[in-house]
Write a protein that binds this DNA or RNA. Structure first.
Length: 795
DNA sequence: GCAAGGTC
């Protein structure tokens, strides 16, 4: 008979098969799924990779209609498991029938144990007598894998059940509270209001911060500086630092103002090491990526691509210590074929290469590091930027420390002490390789104890204390990690979810009115779900189950009892909670005052998408069309010409303010960028439903002439027309590139002509790469289809 | 149409 080995993901399965078979395994593809086969000691082995969880937990179909189910009843409904990755599930069952043993070789962590148990449950449906074993390895390298397979153990059911309890609890709390709150506030359909163990505490933090900012009372304080000169200009600060007492400030100023000299009381110079940064885990990778202007979600999506294409290691990791089995030198040598060759050679020439290490060391995956060389031609745009970040981070972690000279001086002016501090780089060390962190110190001149230094002036600087800053994606990720909210794989998704649900807006994150109202209601009536402690408690309970001290049933029941309490409380306050939230979300949609009756002009949804209408409808019938893409915000301003509200439209390519009234004089000629060469009408900058910009003729539908436009970067319409085809010429200004001018007509006869001219020179390669980008563009559009397919498959 | 956790 044969043995079936189950890995957590395709890549892991491939590596397990390779390691156990000494590279002799054969792969067979069935659709998107690969099965690896090999023989060893006369025994046949199959290795199959899962895609994480292949079953999901949900309530049966009979509970799908929200209005027909009392959420309180839902609390005690037993959810059911359904295979969502059908293809993998079918292959799993088919192979299991042929085998007498199955070895679970999923990741060595809690979820890995559950993923394995789920597979076993499916297998037992078709082969109840199969023998089940577990292989636990802490790195996907041959020696570790072999050791694990020589020391097989049993599946840890308690550990798996602990993870399962989390699933039950998250689903119950999430579904019940989401439904309760959504129904109470009349937000049904796609506008539902979600609540969850991780997202709600995260949102509550953001709301709390906003509240702190709003209620912050700035305090005036002073700082006193002495501007000094010894060969160079520098400054010293009064030792009191921030002075909030006005009398104290006056007293000091009285003594020091007008002074011409300071006496140096002491001067010291020290050297300190500037340690290189620690290896990347998911959180630090994503927070550093925000410096490149990438959102956490976008950075993660790119990291995934780089991983599947074999450029970087697995991007979902908490580990900050390179594992023992990893070759640092080998990793560096791999990069010799990249544009980082010179830097890598410098690093390799060190007598000893010792990497930095962080505090967190896990055994499932290494920190994120580059595994293969790439060039700017292969990886473009953001992909290259992120790859470069990973490479430079890796180089920095094995680069020498910087050496920093630290200077400290104490000085006296008429009995008042002033301090000067200087820092300068003696040796650049890792800073040279990692430009994302800049050395910020500044040197002061060398001083001598007991000498005088000339004062050029005393400065009294008045300032005000500032409220704590709003969260950014980077600071939010860090805070979530600190509080144990979410995991390396989900934190960025949770943040994205808060944006998608319109709970938060902006790079400097603000909660919407709806979010504030939602959080206030939850804090008052369902505090548990807004606190990180719920996760901490759950973690403890899970540990209890894993250790065998608690039962799955007790933990889940206890949680359901608590949820029942909360549910009853919300039900009893249903009207006031619903009223407060729907009032807030109504306000969110107000764009300004109606110029005709003074009512509120609100965003409304109709059959043909969104539009703006007066709140006094049907008495007042004022309506305005709205663009169907982009975010619309009120500006609080009224149009000076027609009195209608002025709105702001925010698109990924920029923002603009305009009068909401399309027939207003201020909108005349808006967006007109040139003449249509076909009919002489106006060419107007328009946006499709999906937010893509293009040029369309004003005589549409009589004239159907359109031109596509680049979707990234700022556009400047030059007013010039193309000498070949008469289409407008546009200048594209995009970050990190020189502005370039193009004719917007993609099939302009002038383009071929230019290509021909280029080919005459040595530009053959260049035009070749141009062709490939053109193909890539088309490929992208095609790639949209399979991803849609995937989405429907899931459902 | 609910969550959070794997993975793609």
């Amino acid at each position: 008979m044969s043995t079936l080995i189950i890995g957590e993901k395709a890549n892991a399965a491939r590596r397990i098969a390779y390691a156990l078979s000494d590279g002799k395994s054969k792969s067979k593809r069935e659709g998107r799924v690969s099965v690896h086969e090999f023989e060893k000691d006369g025994e046949k082995y199959y290795v199959l990779g899962l895609a994480g969880h292949i079953v999901s937990l949900d309530y049966g179909k009979e509970y799908n209609q929200w209005k027909k189910v009392d959420p309180e009843e839902l609390i005690w409904v037993e959810p059911v498991k359904e295979v969502h990755a059908r293809a993998i599930g079918n292959i799993l069952k088919r192979l299991a029938k042929e085998c007498d043993t199955v070895i679970i070789a999923t990741d060595f962590d809690r979820e890995g144990e559950l993923i394995g148990m789920e597979a076993v449950e499916l297998i037992k449906q078709v082969n109840p007598s199969i023998k089940v074993k577990r292989a636990r390895f802490s790195a996907l390298i041959k020696s570790e894998i072999e050791k694990a397979f020589q020391n097989l153990t049993d599946l840890d059911t308690n550990l798996a059940r602990s993870a399962e309890s989390r699933q039950y609890i998250d689903l119950a709390w999430g579904a019940v509270l989401t439904r309760l709150i959504s129904m109470a506030s009349g937000r049904l359909g796609r506008d539902f209001l979600s609540v969850g163990r991780v997202q709600s505490p995260t949102l509550a933090m953001i709301v709390k911060r906003e509240h702190e900012i709003e209620s912050f009372v700035p305090e005036t304080y002073w700082k006193i500086y002495a501007h000094l000169k010894k060969k160079r200009k520098f400054r010293a600060e009064h030792e009191a630092g921030m002075i909030k007492d006005e009398a104290q400030k006056d007293a000091i100023m009285k003594k020091v103002d007008g002074a011409e000299k300071v006496k140096v009381l002491s001067y010291t110079e020290k050297e300190r090491k500037g340690r290189p940064p620690i290896p990347f885990n998911t959180t630090t990778l994503l927070t550093e990526a925000t410096k490149l202007g990438l959102s956490a979600s976008r950075a993660m999506a790119i990291a995934e691509e780089l991983y599947t294409e074999g450029y970087i290691s697995y991007p979902r990791t908490d580990n900050t210590v390179y594992p023992r089995g990893m070759s640092i030198k080998g990793t560096l040598e791999n990069l010799l074929e990249s544009p980082f060759k010179d830097e890598v050679e410098e690093i390799l020439s060190q007598p000893k290469i010792s990497p930095t290490r962080g505090k967190v060391e896990t055994t499932d995956h290494p920190p994120v590091y580059p595994v293969r060389a790439a060039t700017k031609q292969k990886l473009k745009g953001d992909k290259w930027k992120l790859y470069e970040l990973v490479v430079r981070r890796f180089i920095a972690t094995v680069a020498p420390s910087a050496e920093i000279r630290v200077q400290d001086a104490e000085m006296d002016i008429n009995g008042e002490k002033f301090l000067a501090h200087g820092e300068s780089l003696i040796k650049e060390g890792w800073y040279k390789y990692y430009p994302y962190i800049k050395f910020k110190g500044k040197a002061i001149p060398e001083l001598e104890e007991g000498t005088d230094v000339n004062v050029e002036g005393i400065e009294l600087k008045e300032d005000q204390t500032e409220p704590p800053p709003r969260y950014t994606q980077a600071s939010l990720l860090k805070e979530m990690e600190r509080l144990g909210l979410g995991t390396k794989s989900t934190r960025h998704e949770i943040i994205q979810k808060l944006y998608d649900r319109k709970y938060i807006t902006g790079k400097s994150i603000r909660p919407t009115k709806t979010a504030v109202s939602l959080v206030n209601s939850l804090v008052e009536h369902a505090t548990t779900i807004t606190e990180p402690e719920m996760t901490a408690t759950l973690e403890k309970d899970m540990e209890g189950i894993a250790e065998g001290d608690k039962s799955f049933d007790d933990v889940v029941k206890e949680s359901r009892d608590m949820l029942e309490q909360v549910t009853k409380q919300i039900k009893s306050e249903r009207a006031s909670i619903g009223g407060a939230i729907s009032k807030a979300s109504d306000e969110e949609n107000v764009l300004g005052k109606c110029p005709s009756c003074g009512g509120d002009i609100r965003i409304r949804r109709g059959r043909n998408g969104r539009f703006a209408g007066c709140s006094n409808y049907p008495e007042c019938k004022v309506t305005y069309p709205l663009p169907q893409s982009g975010t619309i915000e009120p500006t609080g301003k009224q149009c000076e010409v027609c009195g209608a509200p002025v709105i702001r439209i925010i698109r990924s390519t920029g923002r603009e303010e305009m009068c909401i009234n399309p027939t207003c004089k201020t909108n005349e000629g808006r967006g007109v960028v040139g003449k249509c060469p076909l009919c002489g009408g106006d060419l107007i900058l328009r946006y499709s439903r999906r937010g893509k910009r293009f040029l369309g003729c004003s005589n549409y539908p009589a004239c159907g002439n359109t031109y596509p436009l680049p979707q990234r970067g700022k556009l400047e319409f030059t007013g010039e027309t193309c000498p070949y085809c008469g289409a407008p010429i546009v200048t594209v200004i995009s970050k990190g590139r020189k502005p370039w001018k193009i004719c917007v007509n993609p099939v302009c006869p002038g383009k071929e002509k230019k290509e021909k001219e280029k080919k005459d020179g040595s530009a053959e390669k260049k035009s070749g790469s141009k062709n490939s980008t053109a193909k890539k563009g088309k490929g992208k559009k095609k790639a949209g289809k399979p991803s849609k397919k995937r989405a429907t498959e899931k459902k």
